[in-house]
Design a protein around this nucleic acid. Structure first.
Lengths: 213, 213
DNA sequence: TTAGAACTATGTTCTAAAACACAAATATAT
DNA sequence: ATATATTTGTGTTTTAGAACATAGTTCTAA
């Protein structure tokens, strides 16, 4: 998508940064400087709300772009990002990206499309998180994690190692409710759990629970 | 922002359309074709969720652009739009916009910035709507309506004529709860109501209620 | 201009989910 | 390896807000 000259410039300005598990990548209210490209690992984008209660807004997988929205909106970050697990991130100064973009319609459309997709997801998420009940929201999150990170070799275990608290923050519920509802799903033979490993037994049921709310 | 040639093309492809009060402008699942520019009137962008319950996602005032997100995401609309009151909308084929955009970095950045701002608002809205209590959500909506549509000549009455149901759908609550909470605000001398006209008496209190949730 | 539909208001009941409490099991750091 | 912190699991209590019921009021269309 870039010209040879652009690629050269990119290479000399890109920096690779490693983050340890649970390390913060950027903070709320900070000033956005770089486009971040997740090369390895898993990242959560979250925001703390009433009484510091945290809500996971987006989760990233390799290779996805993040951290650029606030820069384009000309405002500080309204979210924070941290590493679910050890990560490798490539940082590129947003000034450079913006400069490329002014002369490269394809690149501009690429960003427009990413933003448009994310905005559509956010619009739907507002309704899902506010209107669905706890079971529906948790079922949706499990399916969402499966879509995002895929399954392990057994073709059933969701390929992410998440604390119940994170699962709760993703699904807009308390940790107790995540734990309790997860147990219910186990009793109903929809999933099995082994510590933090979650295996999906009856995906169709999950879809149904998510759909009816 | 456009060249003379672009402006000519724009003029010959733009269509002005009028919508009556409560008329639908576009529907969920429809295919996006046009960029819409609201010239006159007020528009709600909404989505129906569990059991057909509607949630207002965004509200538009003149002169704002809408209807383009789904086209850029290459997907059907996930929301619908309707007129709060009689509206004049200018429609421009998205194909034309996209063509302009490929050669016009400024225009591309304009769309990128709009999308980025809206995505930031959506991210914050998710947290506000899920974590704040009814009073906080309603207070926030009232302030939001004031910011968007401004005040009448008296410098206190919010310049929009909204049904309680719309206020509820904006604030993620039942109509009864919107009515009840509005009454409470009146008793606490935070607002006064005269039918659908809402006058803000104590804006500071509203801010505080919105902030604490 | 009047009938009926839609909206507003308020009281009452019911329930999902938060809050709280505590024990058991795991992680993690020293 | 062992102490300490964190996470997980369950039972109990409390509560915000939905659901329901009903009546008065205001639109709106024939």
């Amino acid at each position: 998508m870039l010209t040879a000259a652009e690629r050269d410039q990119l290479r000399s300005n890109a920096r690779f940064v490693h983050f340890k598990k649970n390390e913060l990548i950027y903070l709320e209210d900070e000033n956005p400087k770089d486009l971040m490209i997740l090369f390895k690992g898993k990242v959560k984008i979250f925001r703390s709300g009433v009484g510091g209660r945290s809500q996971i807004i987006r989760i990233m997988r390799p290779i996805q772009y993040f951290g650029y929205r606030a820069y384009f909106a000309r405002e500080p970050y309204v979210t924070a990002a941290s590493a679910f697990e050890a990560c490798t991130v490539c940082k590129i100064p947003m000034e450079l990206i913006e400069q490329f973009l002014r002369n490269n319609g394809e690149l501009a459309l690429f960003f427009i499309q990413m933003l448009s997709i994310d905005l559509g997801i956010a619009d739907q998420r507002v309704v899902n998180l506010t209107q669905k009940h706890v079971r529906g929201r948790l079922a949706e999150s499990l399916l969402f994690l499966k879509e995002t990170y895929g399954l392990e070799e057994d073709g059933a275990t969701i390929n992410i190692y998440l604390a119940r608290e994170d699962l709760a923050n993703l699904s807009n519920m308390t940790t107790s409710n995540a734990i309790r509802t997860l147990s219910n799903f186990v009793n109903e033979r929809i999933i099995t759990i082994d510590g933090r490993k979650i295996k999906i037994i009856d995906e169709e049921r999950l879809h149904k629970i998510s759909r009816i709310g």
